[in-house]
Design a protein around this nucleic acid. Structure first.
Length: 771
DNA sequence: GGGTGCCTCGAGGAC
DNA sequence: CGAGGCACCC
C-alpha cells in the first residue's frame, strides 16, 4: 500500500508525502505537483499510517481547490472517503467554510446566533452606509468603500474595533465607523467573510476548552497556498496545530498575488521562525513547461529582492522560443492573438481549449472579444459580472434570507420595495427609527404595526410613530405576505418556497418586463432551482440555512467547467493554478502591466512582477508576449512604453514575432518609444531596484501621450510621407513607407526596414528623412 | 414615490 | 468610453 501511494513521485515529493510528524514547509514552484503532493499525503496518512479520516483537516482557499483535492483523494483510494456533505469523515474545505461550520457548532460559546447570515461585500457596504448615517458622517468625505477596506484590513490583522488605533483624523473616523458597523452587524445577526475567520480565532483564544476539542480532533493539518494566508488565518492554523505540531504548509512566495485582499506572503517566513524545527522541502522540478518558458519566468522573478532564490528545472527540453510581438493598437493586438490561434489550430498544433489570453484588467477583454466574434472563434470569458452578484439573484436570495433570519434588515431593505409597493425611503426610515427604539428588527416593528397579538402583549404601549395611514397599509400588506412565507418555510422545499415568494411578491411579473434582458434575468433566478434541489433531502429545519450558507460561500469560479473547445480569456489573477499549451499575455505596457497604480510602491511592483511570473508559468509549450504601441483606454488614446518585464527577458529566449527581427524584440520595441516616442519615457526602462527615485525624477513616470498631443504638430491634412517613399532613420537605416496617416495631432508612419521589421513611428518624434 | 439625466471615475477578487 | 450613483423633477 505504502509503495503504490508514493510510486511515481520524485524524491522531494516523496519526502513531503512521507514526513508525517512535526511541521513541514513545502516551497512548491509552479507546476511542481503540489496538488499531487497534498492528495498523496492525505492518502498516505490514511492508508500507510492509519490515521482516522476525522483527525485530518485540509484547508484551501477556493471551493474549486477543495473539490479537486477531494476528488483526487477519492480517486487515489478508490473509494469515497471524502464527501462534501457532513463532517464525519475528512475535513476538506476552504478557510471560510470550515470556520462557518465551527461557528455554527459553537454558536453559544462564540456568542453568535446559530442562524446568522453571511453578508457579502455589497451588504457590508450597505451596513457601512448605515453606520455613516448613524454617526452623521458624510459619505463623500469618508468613502464607504475605503471604510470597508479599513475595517477588513483590521479584521484580517485581528484588530477589534476597541483596539483600533487611530493616529490620523481619518483613522479616528474609521475607528468609530468600525464600532458602529459591528453593532449594526450584530443587530442583523450577520457576519461578514472576515468575521468567519477572526471570530473563530477569537473563539479559540478566549475559550481554551473549545480549542482543546478541536486540537484533539485534528491531529493532522494541511494548508494549501500558504503564501495567501492573512494574519487571522495564520493564527487559526497555528492554534489548531498547537498541540500536535503536525502542520503541513505548501506555498510559493513567488506566486503571492493577493496582498490587496490581506494575504501576506511573509507568513511563509513566519512559519520558519515559529517552527524552527520544521522540515523545509523545495519542489523545483517542473512538470509543465519547457525550459525556455521556465528561464523566461526566472529572468522576470529574479529581479525581486524579497524572495528565496529557486531554480526551476524541467526534463522537457528547451522547446520553442518565446514570441514577442509589438502590435499597433489594442485591436491590432487582438487580431494578432486571434490569427495566431487560428494558425496554430489549423496547423493542428493545438486545440482552441489549449489557448488562453491573459490580461491585467478586465477592461482589456473588450477588443479581444470583438476580434473573436468577428472571426467566429468560440471563446469563453472568465470573470466579469458574477452570477451571485447579479441583481436578480441577490434580490431572490434576500427574500429567502429574510424568511430565514427576520432580523436581517439589510435584506429587508433590499426587497421591501422591490417590486415597487409604495414603501419609499421615508416610510422605511420611519419604520427603522421606530423599530430600533423598541429594540426590534424592522420585521418585528412591522409585526407590531400589523397588530400581531403576541407582539401587542409584549409591547403594549409602543412609542409614537410618524407613519401615515397609506404607509401603514402598505407595510401591513407586506408583513402579512412575509409572515405567511415564514409560516410555510419548513413545509416547502426551497424551490417551492422560492416560486411562491416570486409569485406572491410580484417579483416574477415585475422582472419579466417583456424585454430580452428581463427574460434573461428571470432565467438566472430559475438557475437557483438546480442548486436548491440538492437540499431537498435535508431535514426542513436546517435546509434553508444550509442552502443560504452554501450560496454565500460559493463563487462561479467553481463552475469554471472545461466544456467545449473554446479559447479562454481571463485576467492574470484568475489564471493562477491553471495551465495551457499556448498562453498569450497582452497589454505588456507600462501603466497597464505593471499597472499605473502600482508604479510608485516597490512592494506593489514586486507583486506585479509575481503576477507576470504567474502568467508566464501557466504556459506549457508556447508563450506569446504582446504589447501595443498605442492603446485607447477610458476613451483616450495613449502611448505607453513597453513593460519593464519584457526588457528582462534574455534575447536568446525570444523571437520577435511580427517584428521579424533576430535582434531583441523587446529592446527594439522599447527603443521605438524611448528614443522616438514621448519624452521622458526612458524612465520606464529603469528596474524597480531603486524605486525611491521614481517619483521625484521630474515626472518621468507619466507615460501618457499628452506630450505629443500638446505639440502643435503640423495640422496639415496632407501626410508628409506616402506609401512607397524611401526614408532614412537613425537607428533602422533605410526603409520603405507602407502607409501613413494623419491623426488628430500627429502623423503615424508605418515603415518597413529590410532586416529590421516593420515599425510604426510618430512623425513628430522619429527623425525620418526622405531619401 | 418613481423616473430621467448628469456627473464622476476607473485594478486585481476567494469567501 | 461606459457603468453606477445621485440629484432633481414630475
Amino acid at each position: 500500500m505504502h509503495e503504490d501511494i508514493v510510486a511515481g513521485l520524485n524524491p522531494s515529493q516523496t519526502e513531503a508525502v512521507t514526513t508525517i510528524k512535526g511541521p513541514v514547509l513545502v516551497l512548491a514552484g509552479p507546476g511542481s505537483g503540489k496538488t499531487r503532493v497534498l492528495a498523496h499525503r492525505v492518502a498516505f496518512l490514511l492508508r500507510a499510517v492509519g490515521v482516522s479520516p476525522r483527525s485530518l483537516m485540509a484547508v484551501t482557499f477556493t471551493n474549486k481547490a477543495a473539490g479537486e483535492m477531494r476528488e483526487r483523494i477519492n480517486r487515489l483510494l478508490g473509494e469515497a472517503v471524502s464527501t462534501s456533505a457532513g463532517w464525519r469523515g475528512l475535513t476538506i474545505g476552504t478557510f471560510h467554510s470550515i470556520c462557518a461550520y465551527i461557528l455554527r457548532q459553537e454558536a453559544a460559546p462564540a456568542h453568535i446566533d446559530p442562524n446568522y447570515v453571511i453578508f457579502d461585500d455589497s451588504e457590508q457596504l450597505a451596513v457601512i452606509k448605515q453606520a455613516l448615517r448613524d454617526l452623521k458622517l458624510d459619505e463623500k468625505m469618508y468613502r464607504p468603500e475605503a471604510m470597508r477596506a479599513a475595517i477588513s484590513r483590521a479584521k484580517n490583522e485581528l484588530i477589534k474595533s476597541t483596539a483600533f488605533e487611530a493616529t490620523t483624523y481619518w483613522a479616528e473616523v474609521a475607528r468609530r465607523v468600525y464600532g458602529r458597523y459591528e453593532e449594526v452587524m450584530a443587530a442583523n445577526h450577520a457576519l461578514d467573510f472576515d468575521d468567519l475567520l477572526c471570530r473563530t480565532t477569537y473563539l479559540f483564544k478566549e475559550q481554551p476548552e473549545v480549542l482543546s476539542r478541536y486540537q484533539e480532533r485534528y491531529q493532522y493539518l494541511l494548508v494549501d497556498e500558504f503564501q495567501d494566508t492573512n494574519t487571522a488565518q495564520y493564527e487559526l492554523v497555528s492554534m489548531l496545530a498547537g498541540r500536535s505540531h503536525n502542520l503541513f504548509a505548501v506555498g510559493d512566495e513567488d506566486q503571492s498575488i493577493f496582498a490587496f485582499r490581506g494575504a501576506d506572503y511573509r507568513n511563509v517566513m513566519r512559519f520558519r521562525e515559529d517552527y524552527p524545527e520544521a522540515k523545509v522541502i523545495l519542489l523545483e522540478q517542473n512538470y509543465r513547461s519547457t525550459q525556455t518558458i521556465l528561464d523566461t519566468a526566472n529572468a522576470i522573478i529574479a529581479r525581486n529582492l524579497h524572495r528565496t532564490p529557486k531554480q526551476l528545472r524541467t526534463e522537457r527540453g528547451r522547446g520553442l522560443q518565446v514570441t514577442l510581438h509589438e502590435a499597433y493598437d489594442e485591436s491590432d493586438e487582438a487580431n494578432f492573438v486571434v490569427s495566431t490561434i487560428q494558425r496554430l489550430v489549423s496547423q493542428e498544433e493545438v486545440r482552441l481549449s489549449d489557448c488562453a489570453v491573459m490580461y491585467r484588467t478586465n477592461a482589456q477583454s473588450r477588443p479581444l472579444e470583438d476580434a473573436f466574434v468577428a472571426r467566429g472563434i468560440p471563446y469563453r470569458l472568465v470573470g466579469g459580472t458574477r452570477f451571485y452578484q447579479r441583481r436578480e439573484i441577490k434580490d431572490a436570495l434576500a427574500y429567502l434570507r429574510l424568511v430565514h433570519n427576520p432580523a436581517d434588515n439589510v435584506s429587508l431593505m433590499r426587497i421591501i420595495n422591490v417590486p415597487p409597493r409604495s414603501i419609499g425611503d421615508k416610510t422605511i426610515g420611519a419604520l427603522n427609527t421606530w423599530s430600533s427604539e423598541l429594540g426590534l428588527p424592522m420585521t418585528g416593528g412591522m409585526a407590531l404595526l400589523a397588530g400581531d397579538p403576541q407582539m401587542n402583549v409584549r409591547y403594549p404601549e409602543p412609542p409614537q410613530h410618524s407613519l401615515g395611514t397609506a404607509a401603514l397599509r402598505s407595510l401591513t400588506a407586506f408583513y402579512r405576505m412575509f409572515a405567511s412565507w415564514v409560516a410555510q418555510k419548513d413545509r416547502l422545499t426551497i424551490e417551492a418556497l422560492l416560486d411562491r415568494i416570486s409569485e406572491e411578491s410580484g417579483y416574477a411579473t415585475w422582472l419579466k418586463d417583456g424585454t430580452e434582458q428581463g427574460q434573461e434575468r428571470w432565467e438566472n433566478v430559475q438557475e437557483l432551482h438546480s442548486v436548491a434541489e440538492q437540499y431537498d433531502d435535508l431535514p426542513p429545519d436546517v435546509r434553508l440555512g444550509a442552502f443560504l450558507e452554501e450560496v454565500a460561500l460559493v463563487s462561479d469560479q467553481d463552475q469554471l467547467a472545461e466544456e467545449q473547445d473554446r479559447v479562454t480569456l481571463l485576467t492574470l489573477h484568475t489564471a493562477k493554478g491553471l495551465e495551457y499549451k499556448a498562453v498569450f499575455i497582452v497589454g505588456l505596457e507600462e501603466n497597464i502591466f505593471p499597472h499605473s497604480r502600482s508604479l510608485e510602491d516597490p512592494d506593489q511592483l514586486e507583486e506585479e512582477r509575481r503576477l507576470m511570473y504567474v502568467g508566464v508559468t501557466r504556459a506549457k509549450d508556447r508563450l506569446y508576449l504582446v504589447r501595443a504601441f498605442r492603446r485607447t483606454l477610458y476613451g483616450r488614446s495613449e502611448v505607453n512604453a513597453p513593460s519593464r518585464f519584457l526588457i528582462d527577458i534574455p534575447e536568446k529566449l525570444q523571437v520577435g514575432g511580427g517584428i521579424g527581427d533576430r535582434k531583441a524584440a523587446a529592446r527594439q520595441a522599447l527603443e521605438n518609444v524611448t528614443r522616438w516616442g514621448p519624452q521622458g519615457s526612458n524612465a520606464q526602462a529603469r528596474p524597480e531596484r531603486r524605486p525611491a527615485r521614481v517619483a521625484p525624477a521630474g515626472g518621468g513616470q507619466s507615460e501618457r501621450a499628452e506630450k505629443p498631443a500638446e505639440k502643435p504638430a503640423a495640422p496639415a491634412r496632407k501626410t508628409q510621407f506616402k506609401p512607397g517613399d524611401r526614408v532614412d532613420h537613425g537607428l533602422f537605416g533605410t526603409g520603405i513607407v507602407l502607409k501613413s496617416q494623419v491623426t488628430a495631432d500627429d502623423e503615424e508612419v508605418t515603415v518597413t526596414f529590410p532586416g529590421k521589421g516593420t515599425k510604426t513611428l510618430l512623425a513628430s518624434f522619429a527623425r525620418l528623412r526622405k531619401v
